[in-house]
Each structure stands twice: as C-alpha cells, then as structure tokens.
Design a protein around this nucleic acid. Sequence first.
DNA 1: AACATATCATGAAAAGTTTTATGGACAAAG
DNA 2: CTTTGTCCATAAAACTTTTCATGATATGTT
Lengths: 334, 334
Amino acid sequence: MTIYDISQKAGVSIATVSRVLNGNTNVSEKTRKKVLDVIEKYDYAPNVFARGLGLDSMNCVGILCADSSDIYLAKAVYYIEQGLRAYGYNSLLSCTGYDLENRKKSLSMMLNQRVDCVILVGSSYLEQDDSNNAYIREASVKMPVMLLNADFDCENVYCVLCDDFKSTMDATLWLMEHKRKKILYLYNSTSYSAIRKLSGFRSAILMKEQTLDKNYELYFPGSRDDIDGVRDLLLETRKKGLEFDAVVCADDSLASGVIKYAKAAKLSIPKDLSVIGYNNSILTITCEPELSSVDNHLQDQCEQLVKSCVQILRGEETPRKIIFSGELIERSTT
Amino acid sequence: MTIYDISQKAGVSIATVSRVLNGNTNVSEKTRKKVLDVIEKYDYAPNVFARGLGLDSMNCVGILCADSSDIYLAKAVYYIEQGLRAYGYNSLLSCTGYDLENRKKSLSMMLNQRVDCVILVGSSYLEQDDSNNAYIREASVKMPVMLLNADFDCENVYCVLCDDFKSTMDATLWLMEHKRKKILYLYNSTSYSAIRKLSGFRSAILMKEQTLDKNYELYFPGSRDDIDGVRDLLLETRKKGLEFDAVVCADDSLASGVIKYAKAAKLSIPKDLSVIGYNNSILTITCEPELSSVDNHLQDQCEQLVKSCVQILRGEETPRKIIFSGELIERSTT
DNA sequence: AACATATCATGAAAAGTTTTATGGACAAAG
DNA sequence: CTTTGTCCATAAAACTTTTCATGATATGTT
C-alpha cells in the first residue's frame, strides 16, 4: 500500500494525500475527509524511508550512554525515552562504554543514521582534557547535541545538569556542622561530574578552614558495581592509618560499599561513621541502614532535556544551559 | 556527497560503487581499490534513507521492554544492545509499560519503522489469556519476533528463556530439604514467568506431599520498587495469623522487601526465616544479609537471543525455542 | 586458427515513496 | 473583463540498490 494506491482510490493526486498526512491547510474539508477515509480503511502508513528521503529526517533522536544497565543511567535513559515518545520521537539507543574511541565511533554512526539530534547521557562524555572533547564540537556542526549532567560551552550544544559542585559542598558542610572532623570523599571516575563534586568537597573544607590534612580524597579504580572492592579498598586504607568519621560518595553504589566496610570493620553507622551517597537510587532503601543521599532530581532534568530538545527541533529558542540543584535526603546513615 | 559524486570521481558507474560498498564479488581488484580510495578520501557513507528504500531494511532491530529502568530489564536491554551492535545492527528502543494497549501501539509503530525484527524483552509481553497475545501473532506475519523469557508457540516467533518452573521448584525443594515447613511464594505480577514460577512452587509442594494448607502464595499488587510496600504487606499478613519460615520470591526486589519485613518483625535471617530471590541482581549484595538468589544466566540468554536473531535475519535456520536452566546462588539468607 | 561459448566487469536504467515548487483551473470579487 | 485567492495536479528532486544488457576477455572445440 503506497501513497499512489491511496491517491488513486481517493481520486486525488499523491500531493493531496501528502498534504492531508502532514496537516497542510490547503485542502478542502471534503477532500480531506475523503482521503482520511481511504487511509483509515487501508490502514496506510507512509514508508519511513521515502519520507526520510524527502524530509532528511527520521523523527528519531539518538541516545548515547556509557552503560544502560547502570542503575543511574538506566533511569535517565528511561525518562528520556518516555519523554521523546510522548512528543512523537523514536529513540535510537547506543551503549558506548567509557572508552573514548568507542564513543567517537558510536557518535559518528548516529550522525550517519540521520537522527534529528543526539543526547549524550551522563558526564562520562565530557573529559577533563578539553582536546578530547573535540568530537562533540564536530558533531554539533551537523546536528544539535544535548548533554545530560555535563557542562560544555559550544554553539548548538545544550546542557541540562545538576549543580554537583554545590550539592557536594553542602553535603560536606552539613557533615561538618554535625561534628564530623575527618571526612573522606570517595569517587570512582574522573568524569566531569565526579571532578565537580571533588571541587565542591574541597571548597567546603576550605570554607571551614580545615586543612586537607585531616580530610581526604580517595579514588576507587574498580567498576561501579564492585561493592566488595570498595569495602576492601577502605579496609586496606584504614590499615595504613588513614582515619575518617564520614564519607561523601560520588555514587550510591560506592556508599553501599562503605556500609559493607563499616560492617567488616565493626563500625557503627552513623555513630562511628556517617555516609552520604549520591543519586538517591533504589540502593538507598535496600541498604541497611538506609542510605542518606543527594537527590539530583533526575526525572525533572530528563523532562527538561526532552522539552529543550523538542524546542530546538521545532526551531524555537531554548537556553543553552539549565542547572538544577541537588537536595540531601536524610536517612539513617547520617 | 552522494554515490554519484563518488562514481564520477572514481571514473566508474554508480552500480560499481554500490557493488564495492556491498561486497559484491563482480568487481576487479583494481576497480575496487580505486573506488575505496575515493570513498576513504571523501569519508563517504551511503544515505540511509535511499539505502533503506532500496533494501527495505534499515539494519535496525526494535527492542521493546516494559520499563528499561527496572534493574533486571535494564541488564537485558544492555546485553541485547551490545550484542546487536557487535553484529552491526542498531537498536531502536521503546519502553511500553505494562499496559496491553500501549504495547500493541508500540509494536505496530516498530513495524511501520521497518525494523528488521523485534525483540520483546521480559515475560510481561505474554498474557495468560491467550486471546490477548494475538498482537504477537499478527506482528510475526510481518517480521520475526523474538521473545526473551517467555514461551510462545508460533511460526516466526523465537523464544529464549529460563526454565523458571524447574528453578523455582528446585529452590522450594531445597528449602524443604533444609527443614523449612511453611514456605511462602511471593510474586508481584501475573506475567508468564511469575505464573511459571508459581507452578514450580506448587509442584514442589505436591512432590513432598505437603498440602498447601501450610504453604502459601501471596500476590503483591504494588510496583516493583516499592520495597516498603512488601514489608508492610507481610507485617499485615502476619498479623492475620499466617505463619511462614521461608519465602521464595519471584524477584530480588521482593526479597529485599522480605528482609525489611524480617527486621521490622525482629526475625533473624536465616535462623527464623529463609529468603530466596530471583535474578541474582545487584540487590543481592547490597542487602544485609546478602541474598540467596536464582541466577538465570541472563547474559547468556541475551547473547543466544542475539545470535539467533542474526541467524534468522541472514536466512539461516535456528531453533524456535531455547531453554536455559537457573542455578541457586547461596548467600546468607538461606 | 577460427569460431562458439562461458565468464567477468561494467554501465544504463528502473524501482522504491515522499516532499516541494510551480503552475493551472475555477470561483468570487471588483 | 481582470484580479485575487483557493484548491489541487504535475513534475522534479531526494539517493541508493538491483536488474538487465552489453562489451571484453578467457576457454574450449573443431
């Protein structure tokens, strides 16, 4: 069933059928009805390829994320997909891993696929070394690029993010106000977001004129889900003499490892050790005790991102950067 | 840059360029090299729409799942996407929710998008009432349909699943052999998989000639992540006089709720209460105590699914049903 | 050696379906 | 009778794959 068949059966030209399909006004009500009836009757839908050829668009947005099975990224992908669907867009998904070369390859694949726009989910797409971000600039020449949870100043690149700097600073200050003297910042990536959190942590330390001698930063090189690895790292660290009475984590799963560590080291939470996670994921309520965590309003961020995305595709103006603020959700580890 | 430009610059016809691009053998080595050089030089990639029009395929597989933010489904989607990518296919993602109408709509959207094949992830796509599965039969006429974790006998429908019946039966028998007398089966959906597990549970009970008087089945109507809801349901159930010394769960997050319940009811795990989860997800190691769970080899299943999918698309033969067996991973709740 | 046949390499053209630009037909208004 | 505006048809353009046809070369036969 093609547009020719429809036009023939309705006794009009294919152009008229096209106009009806695309809501063009230059069609009389009578003709429109006649055409719609035939379309309905034969359950006709335009061929996507021919349509794409004509419009050079396939009504589809590319979603890139490092790992859609990561609890946090999975949520983000889900919210974005739902949002796009609501606006009538399809989602092409590509999980690129954390490797730069793979990211580049996936992105250029997306460009070739003629998606209308690409969304890079998660701060891992932005590297500290700015020369490694050239691939984003290049992509932005061909189509709009949206970043979730990263901040990048470039024409045709739009960012929606949480103020990780301030959230982490506030969380750290909060611990200080609650009599914590030796605070550890634990992170497992050198992505944009983790580094911003690190800066927030440092600022809090400086604000209270505590030196970094008594406060620490610890990098965990393992994978996100390696909770036992975090436990072991902390046990080892402690054996080396490093002491701490609170941990600010860049991620809930790290915090989950800290709780394991406390159990192994026979420390009581929150009496001997306070723990604050980040992302307010489901892990916060499956832990024992339940984990305090920074909620970065992921759903709101994603909905805003999609809204901006649609505005851009419609040729409307939208801000290049939108920042949400985080919020500490207090549970039983503080 | 089109195929015309390339053909002109290489001094050959567009047919020859097309042959080179598609690996057709009828091209002399000299010509092939000449064409490849030009393609390389101008970084040419065929227009996907025109290509799609010619081949009626866009080298893309549709992945449907109810909720890609669900821990279990997210893993499955991830493994499938990675597998498809490795074989050169793109993935169009659609999260349909659990509602039948929405599923139908999403599926017919996928068909119109001319994906090469659709993969329905999760047993929620198969309903007990077989008349509600007609939409799958209809889709299978137009393209291959693959089901993960559901069993459906129909031409052009291919299934990869875990033997949930046997796994649950084995888990239940295992509990009986370890002196559990009053076992509860807890489930939160009436999907194909949960019902198969229920049958497995019942069979185990019958095999040991225990009547169902002392063993129970309990349905939790809440959402998957509502862990506190599970706790409250069990507390209430207990108040009504129902007793149990072991719980077999259809899902790890339910098991997580059971652990919460045990804490609230001051029951010791595993002394007073054994708990077995299902899926062996990350929740098993963030729980305290760590959760015993049935591992259904999800990654293997997904890899097999993709392999079968690719075979079908290449026109090769592949079995219509492949069954994996589950395996009880013992941790600290049994 | 001459001719017929098979094989290989290549080109020309059709097929696939839509959108958009252009212009024609017709009715109403001036 | 001319102008204006509405509605619609025609034709061109978007780009690739594939089929058919043709020319060239190699192989086999007499």
